[in-house]
Amino acid sequence: MATGAPAARANDRIAIGVLRHLRGAAAFFVYLRTMLAFFVVWAIIAWWTSNSVLLPSPLAVFAAIGQLAADLELFFHAGISFARMVGSLMIGALLAIPLGLAMGLSRTVGEVVDPTIEVLRPISGIAWIPLALFIFGIGNALPLFIMTYAGFFPILLGTIAGVRGVDRRLIDAARTMGIPQRTIVTRVVIPAALPSLMVALRLGVAASWTAVVAAELIGAPSGLGYAVEWYRELLATPQVMAFIAMIGVLGYLCDLGVRALARLFTPWASDARSAP
């Protein structure tokens, strides 16, 4: 690259910034255009079927969203589901990360625990619902258990993969400097495994968010899944769609949040933004 005067470089940088904003705006415009086309097609089909239970118009759904937001019902259920997810994720991470570290660091622990994990993992969290219904009944504990279980495995596997994937030479380099084993774990292994762990956390959030809807649909007296089911029984389709949209929006925001966390904790990782 040819070396230019500092002023010219600064100008370049401003130009780059402007271009990026323009490109962001263009992408946003395309997004709006596509979604507008989607809503128009939907409105036409709704008008054609003219059955507000089967397919309400998008306007009816927007009205329902407005009304549910105004009396805070939307946020009440969203808040409950979100709190359950955060709680279950914390429990899941608290169990999975130490276990994953132990399994990744010690071959013996890995060999002892691994088959048990591999036996349990294919049994989806949702398949536990009937048994959990018997054990916990309907309430907060059931969705918490199902979500924790669903989020546990991605986090565990990501932690193990992260620890096992640490570049051997980094550890050797630390050992040649005479650094004690414990410090190597905290200062080399864990930071090196962190990007993989953050990716695992994203997968865990996605898994437990999928489980929340199923768990609440069947076994909880509150939350977004419950609300969807409640309004379906009332045949209030606009409200059903409003809550479904809220499930999507909140799921998206959660993913955005974990990605922001990943950037905060692992600013050196380049793939923190890429999709799993």
Binding site: T34, M35, I126, T210, L235, M241, I244
Partner: peptide, 26 residues
């Protein structure tokens, strides 16, 4: 890709089980 991706990304966070009520309705 530019034109279709917004739709895919908008519906992706909605878990399949969440649309069960709609599926039953339809």
């Amino acid at each position: 890709e530019r034109n279709v991706d917004p739709l895919v990304e908008s519906f992706r966070p909605i878990a399949a089980i969440a649309i069960l009520p709609l599926a039953i309705l339809w």
